[in-house]
Each structure stands twice: as C-alpha cells, then as structure tokens.
C-alpha cells in the first residue's frame, strides 16, 4: 500500500487513484475500522473493528437494526466521517492520509451517496439538484446541463426535471437523489436505507433501479438497511449488530420479482 505518503494536491490525488486503481484488487476495503462517539461521559462504540473487502461491481447489502452502526460504517467508507481507529480505503487510497479538501474530492468524484430522506436541496429543481455536484466539480454549464438531463432520463424522470422536490413524490425524489449520486460518474454508490421512507411498491422499484445500475453500469453498491427484499438482489449480505459483523452469506443475486 503506497497510500501512506502524504498527498498534496487534487492533481496528485487523481494520478494516485489511477495508479492504485490498477494495484488494488478491492474497490473498497476496511481494516479494524472503529468509530467511538463521546456522548457526554458515555463512550458509544458505533463501529467496532470492522474488516471488509468489497469487489468491483459487487452489490453488497449490510443489514441491521437502527443503532447497529451501519450508517456510521457507510459514512466512514464514503469519506464523510473519520474513524477513531483502523483504516478505510477507497479505490486503493488510504483515506486517513487525506486532508479535508481531498476527502471532499473523494466524495465528489469517487463515491455517490443515496439517503433515506433523499436529502435534496429544497430550493433547487430536480435538474438543479443533479447539476449541483457537477458544479462543485467545475463541469462547464452546458455539459452539466446535458449530463443532468441524461441522468434524469435514465432514472425515468425526464419529464419532471423542472419540478422542485416538494412537487415530487417520495419515489421520484429518491430517483433524483440516485441521478445526483451518479452525476460525477463515481464507481461506488453508498445507499443508506434507500427504501426506508417509501411505500412497498415504490421501494421495490427503487431496489430494482439500483440493481439495474449495478448490472448495466458495473457500479459497486453498498446498501445498508433492514428491507429484507434487498437480500434478494444482493450478491452478498452482511448482518451487523452493535457495531460488529455477526454473519455473512451470499445474497440471491437475482432480479426483484414484482
């Protein structure tokens, strides 16, 4: 692992990614990853020494009740949060060696987040929401516009582009969020209970959409949640309890029958 060297700029970050992408077998790795929160005088061990290796193109589902630490794990893997101990690697790069800006760049270009509560910007249209990460990445306006349009069409929202989130249904909002996660063409999508706030039918549609993206685009998915239907489409299912992995098995690896 060469990620121990300090990395100075975004340019070197990119070139290092290219180099390490060839050298690393796993797109995401975690070793002895721990996160401890201090809640007043009480120490909360959200994640306890997790080891994880995720293959390229894998659809990994992590099941667990709320409070099991699965969301925290997702945040650690997606460079949104920093571990108390252990290391996380994204596309072979040791996140612990990166500074604030470089971590932001990982979130911008290497991973895409999908949340339970969609987390769309309320003042922006569907189009504007998808364009936002493209603007963060300094994509020229015309390209950003075309890209957002294309992505919204891909998730089935071509006609609803000009609506703001409050004018969209939950399922539609989650589709916008998925399109937004795909904006800068990351190879990894991290989804935190993507169906948790949707009805059964819409939830199934969203699960199927994620599976399709996994199959057709070769994107790697790590989906956390407690929706049992996720296990049907998953390649691998890990169960998490009290911050630790308690079981691991193969998933159905199938399409979701609706």
């Amino acid at each position: 692992m060469t990620g121990e060297q300090p990395i100075q700029s975004e340019d070197t970050l990119t070139s290092l990614f290219d180099y390490q992408s060839r050298t690393s077998e796993f797109i995401i790795e975690a070793s002895k990853l721990s996160k401890t929160y201090q809640m007043g005088s009480v120490e909360v061990h959200a994640v306890r020494g997790v080891d994880l290796q995720v293959r390229r193109g894998e659809f990994l589902v992590i099941l667990g009740v709320s409070g099991s630490g699965k969301s925290t794990l997702l945040h650690l893997l997606g460079a949104l949060d920093q571990p108390t101990e252990g290391k996380a690697y994204v596309e072979g790069l040791d996140l612990s060696t990166l500074d604030h800006n470089q971590l932001a760049d990982v979130r911008l270009r290497r991973v895409g987040f999908v949340f339970q509560f969609f987390n769309l910007m309320p003042q922006l249209t569907a189009q504007g929401n998808v364009e936002l990460p493209l603007k963060f990445a300094d994509v020229p306006a015309e390209n950003a516009h075309g890209r957002a349009r294309e992505l919204l069409t891909r998730v089935g929202l071509g006609e609803r582009r000009t609506h703001v989130p409050s004018e969209l249904s939950g399922g539609e909002q989650q589709r916008v969020a998925i399109a937004r996660a795909l904006a800068n063409n990351p190879r990894i999508i991290l989804a935190d209970e993507p169906t948790g706030n949707l009805d059964t039918k819409t939830g199934a549609e969203i699960i199927q959409l994620l599976r399709n993206l996994n199959q057709t685009q070769g994107l790697t998915f790590i989906v956390v949640g407690h929706d049992r239907r996720l296990t049907t489409v998953a390649d691998r299912v890990i169960e998490m309890r009290d911050g630790e992995f308690v079981s691991e098995r193969e998933g159905g690896g199938e399409e979701l029958v609706q």
Partner: peptide, 13 residues
C-alpha cells in the same frame, strides 16, 4: 442540513 448535503456531495469548506 443543506450544508451537510452539500458537503456529502463533495462541496469543499
């Protein structure tokens, strides 16, 4: 929350 979203999407400080 919006600031959190923007940061999650890769916005720098």
């Amino acid at each position: 929350r919006e600031i959190g979203i923007m940061k999650a999407l890769g916005a720098k400080d």
